[in-house]
């Protein structure tokens, strides 16, 4: 079956285009309290619709939610991203989400890379701070990444950078890409603490 080969090819070629320079220096002498503050800001970002709408866990349906969408609902047109997470089984995300983001309202945003859903394990939509924190610091559910690698990945994965320049009148994720990456490093330097500790 042809799909399998295509999925394999797609997974091998993750969208690493246009790196954005971010400072990856790990801060020293970070207290637990500072680490938890950094996590609180990180949670504001990861639970924001610009991020969580595509972090839908087991589901393969992207969400439409946030200030410009009214009531939260699954992506219109019965869009399914499938096991591939980029829709090759049915309708590729890139059929509409292709090229650059236009500033016209109601147009599909795009980036110079694969538009896609996040991996199943990175389930954020509707989840609380503790749950997401636990997922992000566990190598079994975070893609085996160190905190430095998580911060680094923000610098070169253009689909994530979309969250801060969404265009089309959409509300951007809070803070900035640079601030978010520096919070990841601060949280990591404090030992990746989660709120109950």
């Amino acid at each position: 079956m042809k799909i399998k080969a295509i999925i394999a090819a797609v997974l091998l070629s993750t969208s690493v285009v246009q790196a954005e320079e971010i400072n990856l220096e790990v801060p020293q002498n970070v207290t637990l309290e500072q680490g938890l503050e950094a996590w609180a800001r990180m949670y504001e970002v990861v639970s924001h619709p610009r991020c969580s709408n595509c972090h839908v866990g087991e589901s393969d349906r992207p969400m439409w939610s946030g200030p410009s969408y009214g009531k939260a609902r699954p992506h219109g047109m019965n869009i399914r991203a499938g096991e591939s997470r980029i829709g090759v089984e049915t309708l590729e995300c890139a059929t509409c989400h292709v090229g650059s983001t236009s500033d016209q309202p109601h147009t599909p945003p795009g980036v110079d890379g694969d538009w896609r859903l996040a991996p199943v394990e990175a389930a954020w939509f509707g989840r609380g701070s503790l749950e997401i924190c636990g997922q992000l610091r566990n190598p079994e559910t975070n893609g085996g990444l160190s905190f430095q690698e998580i911060a680094g990945h923000l610098g070169h994965d253009v689909v994530l950078q979309f969250a801060w320049k969404p265009g089309g009148g959409r509300e951007p994720a809070p803070y900035s890409l640079e601030e978010h990456a520096s919070d990841v490093l601060m949280w990591g330097a404090a030992g990746m603490p989660c709120p109950t500790e």
């Binding site: 509409c96 292709v98 090229g99 650059s100 795009g110």
Partner: peptide, 27 residues
């Protein structure tokens, strides 16, 4: 004109694309 109907669908290297929603410079 906003990728909501599919009437403008063409292929770019064999993949379906909504031609109203890609600039010619991005093809």
């Amino acid at each position: 004109g906003i990728a909501q109907c599919g009437a403008c669908t063409v292929h770019v290297d064999g993949s379906a694309v909504r031609s109203c929603s890609i600039t010619v410079g991005d093809v």
